[in-house]
Design a binder for these strands. Structure first.
Lengths: 273, 273
DNA sequence: AATCATAATTGATAAATGTCAATATTATAC
DNA sequence: GTATAATATTGACATTTATCAATTATGATT
C-alpha cells in the first residue's frame, strides 16, 4: 500500500510508535555501558569496574548481510553471541535434507547456548536482515563468571530461561492447534518487541511465512490460511510482513496461554552483556 | 504371562541382562564417592577434596512413594534434584485444566534446572514408582561453583545439554509422524538405560501409555495402535510395560534420527553430583 | 520499466490423527 | 479372593492439517 517499504521497516523496527527509543545499534564500537540494550542486558548489580571487565572481553563483529551465516552446523563452539540489531534464525538439518527452524533471535537475545555441551554448534544461525552481533568468547566468559558471582548467576538464569522457553514451545507443538500456534507466535514476537522498547501493536516480521511455518511445525499453506482467517476475524491486520495486533485479548484466548505473553508480563530481563 | 511381575520389574530395572551392575540406590546414606552413579555423575577432574565438599552440600531425602510429588508448580525453587533410583515425570498444567508432561527422569538425571530463572518451579515432579533423589541446595551449588571452575563448567554443560535435548524434542513434536515419535521415544529410553548400565534391549517402562502419549503430543489411542503395529512388524515385543527391542535398525529408520540415539552414541556424561 | 525468480495465497483432495464408544485387561482395595 | 477402579486396546467415524496444483503478488536484476 504505502510504497516507502524500507523506510517503514526501519521506522517500525526501531520504534515508530510510543515507547520510541532512538538507537544506533549498527555502530559497532559502542561500549557496553553506552549500548542501548544496556538496561535490558546487564544485571543491575554489576558495577562500573566489573562492567569494564565484561566490556573488555567482548568482540564486536562487522554486521552480517541478509542470508549470511553467523555460524554453521558442526562448527566448533568458541563464543556466545548477543544480537545487537537485526535478527537471525537458528535451524538444524534433518535427516531428509530439510531444515528445522529452532528459533528466532531479536536484539538482546543470545545464540549458542545449546553448543556448550558438545563444543560444536548443533544448529546454524542465519541473518534474516542486516544484523550485528556482539561476540563473547566463552572461555573468557567462564573465567569472568568465576570472579563475578553475579555474572555466574545471570548466566545460569539465562540458560534456565532458555530451557523454560523451550518447554513452552514443546507444549505449543505438542498440544496446540494451528491457530493457537500462530496466535502464540505473534504474541510472543509482540511481547519481545515491547520489551525492547518498540511497539507491541505494530511491527514488521523479519522472517518469511515459510520460516514461521517451519518453526511452528505447520505447512506454509496452513500458516497463510491462518493469517487470512485472523484478518477476517478482525484479530490482526497483516500486509505481508507488516503486522498490526487489533484484538490482543482474543488472540490470547485462542493461543490458550496462561498469561505468559500478556503485555503486563513479569520481570523478563532475559538479556545480558 | 509370567506372574512374578514385580520381581521381573526389579530385575529389569536394576539390570537383568548383560551389562548387569549391582546397585543399591535405595540406601539413602551413600556418599557421592561410593554412589554407583559416581562415574556417570561426576566430572572426572574433580578430585578427592573437592568431592567431599560437593558431598557435604548434598542432602539425601527419604524415598518418594509412587505418585508422590517432589515439588509442585509454583513452589519456590531452592534446590536441584538428582534421581538416585526410580523415576519421575515432570508436568505443567495447561489452561484447559489438562496437564502437559514435559519430561521423564531416570537415575542420574537432573530436575529443576528450568526453575532457576524465575525462582519458582514452572512444572511439578511426580514419582512414577518408588524413587529416591539427592537434593542439592542451589545456593550452595552456586557458591561451590564459584570456587571450583570444573564444577561451574560441568553445570553449564549440563544446562546446555538440556537445551539441546529440548530442541531435539521440539523437532520431534513439530515434524515427525506418530510412529516416528514413539520410535524415537523408545530408542531414547533404551539408550538412557544402557548408559546406566542396564539392558538397552529389554526394559520396563515406568510410565503409563497416557503419560507417553501426553509427552509425545499424541492421543493415547494412537500410541496404543503404534505399539500394536510395531509388534506386528516385529520391531518390538511389548507386554504392557515390559519392552523388548527386536529390530533397532528399523526403529532408527522410522524415527528418522541422524544418529543421536544409536547404541554407540557419544560421550554423554550427562549427569552430575 | 520489463523479466524472472521467489514468496504468498487460495482451492480441491487425501492422509493422519483425534474423538467417541465399547471391550478387555490389569491393578487396587476391601 | 472378589469387587471395583484404572489402564489399555480396538473399531468406527470426524476433524484437522498436509499435499498437490494453480494463481497472484512481490522483490530483484538488468
Amino acid at each position: 500500500m504505502i510504497d516507502a517499504g524500507k523506510l517503514m521497516q526501519q521506522k517500525a523496527r526501531y520504534g515508530n510508535m510510543r515507547n520510541t527509543k532512538v538507537v544506533d545499534l549498527h555502530s559497532s564500537k559502542v561500549a557496553c555501558k553506552e549500548c542501548s540494550l544496556h538496561q535490558l542486558c546487564l544485571p543491575r548489580s554489576i558495577n562500573g569496574a566489573d562492567l569494564e571487565k565484561l566490556d573488555s572481553i567482548i568482540e564486536r563483529k562487522k554486521p552480517l548481510k541478509r542470508n549470511e551465516n553467523l555460524f554453521q552446523v558442526g562448527g566448533s563452539f568458541n563464543s556466545i553471541y548477543v544480537v545487537r540489531s537485526g535478527s537471525l534464525k537458528t535451524y538444524s538439518p534433518t535427516v531428509d535434507g530439510q531444515e528445522q527452524v529452532t528459533g528466532f533471535h531479536l536484539p538482546g537475545e543470545l545464540l549458542g547456548l545449546d553448543a556448550i555441551g558438545k563444543g560444536k554448534h548443533p544448529c546454524a544461525a542465519k541473518a534474516l536482515e542486516t544484523t550485528s552481533v556482539c561476540e563473547v568468547p566463552f572461555e573468557h566468559l567462564e573465567g569472568l563468571s568465576q570472579e563475578l558471582p553475579t555474572l555466574q548467576h545471570q548466566l545460569l538464569r539465562l540458560m534456565s530461561k532458555e530451557i523454560f522457553d523451550d518447554q513452552e514451545l514443546m507444549l505449543l507443538l505438542g498440544k496446540k492447534t494451528a491457530e493457537a500456534r500462530l496466535s502464540a507466535f505473534l504474541l510472543s514476537i509482540s511481547l519481545r518487541f515491547k520489551q525492547r522498547g518498540f511497539s507491541s501493536v505494530e511491527f514488521y516480521l523479519s522472517m518469511s511465512r515459510n520460516d514461521i511455518a517451519n518453526y511452528l511445525g505447520l505447512a506454509v499453506e496452513t500458516v497463510s490460511r491462518m493469517f487470512t482467517r485472523f484478518q477476517e476475524d478482525g484479530l490482526i491486520e497483516a500486509e505481508r510482513k507488516h503486522i498490526i495486533i487489533k484484538d490482543r485479548e482474543n488472540l490470547q484466548q485462542i493461543a490458550g496461554m496462561n498469561d505468559c505473553c500478556s503485555e503486563s508480563s513479569d520481570d523478563n530481563s532475559q538479556l545480558m552483556l
